[in-house]
């Protein structure tokens, strides 16, 4: 089942996949155990002449142990999934690592408007640039995306990066990711948002370091060096989401 997962290209995607696999193996074992038992019982205890059913209620302690012992195992496995899940959730959602690049993404019916701060690293200045449905980031750098919506709820989904975050009008929601492999990946909208919901898709281009420099030069053909831009906005203090 999980072999259908698209290739993971984010730093935390492995953690999320490990939870998926943990649950997959646990539930898979229960699947075969319970269904195997049912099939076995249906075969062994099918009606036979002269073999009456056993009169047993399962209300005494030694009888109900047949239920209670597996249930204690279920509880233990539940807690395992919970605690392992809490660690991953903390790693992915509990904190925001310092951003190397920042963009603002505004969703509207039916586009992702992506605003880049330009070489000065500041939003609200003359060199800001908006590209529709095109998100460019360097590989191995933390990208922070501020998500806003102009109309309805959309959902920013990066299947290859195991990131999904609803975009809610009236709110600014921060999301982050760090891509580990250059390439072009799709950004579908995952929340029903109107007649153009199907087909609302952008592209994330993850550039290698050199490639990213070249893209910056192409996009902002100014004397200002783009590497200065990178250092200008990195190194801000780590903050926590409220």
């Amino acid at each position: 089942m999980l072999s259908w997962l698209p290739e993971n290209v984010s730093t935390y995607g492995g953690d999320i996949d490990s939870i998926l696999y943990l649950i997959y193996y646990i539930t898979g074992a229960w699947f075969f155990l319970t269904l195997g038992t049912i099939v076995l019982f249906l075969f062994l205890y099918r009606r036979r002449e002269g073999r009456p059913a056993t009169y047993v209620h399962g209300n005494t302690l030694d009888q109900s142990a047949w239920i209670l012992v597996p249930v204690v195992i279920v509880l233990g496995l539940d807690l395992w999934i919970d605690f392992r899940g809490a660690e991953v959730w903390e790693a992915v959602k509990g904190h925001m690592p310092p951003a190397d690049v920042r963009v603002q993404l505004t969703a509207k019916q039916f586009n992702w408007e992506i605003l880049y701060p330009g070489p000065d690293g500041q939003f609200g200045t003359a060199d800001d640039l908006q590209l529709d449905n095109e998100l460019h980031v360097p590989v191995g750098k933390v990208a922070r995306v501020t998500l806003k919506s102009k109309d309805v709820i959309h959902s920013f989904f990066l299947p290859n990066l195991r990131l999904k975050q609803d975009v809610v009008p009236g709110r600014e929601i921060e999301a982050w990711f760090e891509a580990t492999k250059p390439g072009v990946y799709e950004i579908p909208c995952a929340e029903l948002c109107g007649f153009g919901h199907s087909g609302m898709v952008g592209h994330l281009t993850v550039h290698s370091a050199d490639d990213y420099e070249a893209w910056l030069k192409r996009t902002w053909p100014s004397p200002q060096s783009s590497s200065a831009r990178l250092s200008a906005i990195s190194g801000e203090p780590e903050d926590r989401r409220p």
């Binding site: 319970t34 038992t37 049912i38 019982f41 249906l42 205890y45 099918r46 009606r47 036979r48 073999r51 009456p52 059913a53 056993t54 047993v56 399962g58 047949w66 239920i67 597996p70 249930v71 279920v74 509880l75 539940d78 999934i81 919970d82």
Partner: peptide, 25 residues
């Protein structure tokens, strides 16, 4: 995830009901 506990009890009880029954289909 804890809600799986009561449902596991119900499912195990259903399976245990089949145990040593005289089952028709």
């Amino acid at each position: 995830i804890l809600i799986s506990v009561p449902f596991a009890i119900i499912v195990f009880a259903m399976i245990a009901t089949l145990w040593r029954g005289s089952i028709r289909f």
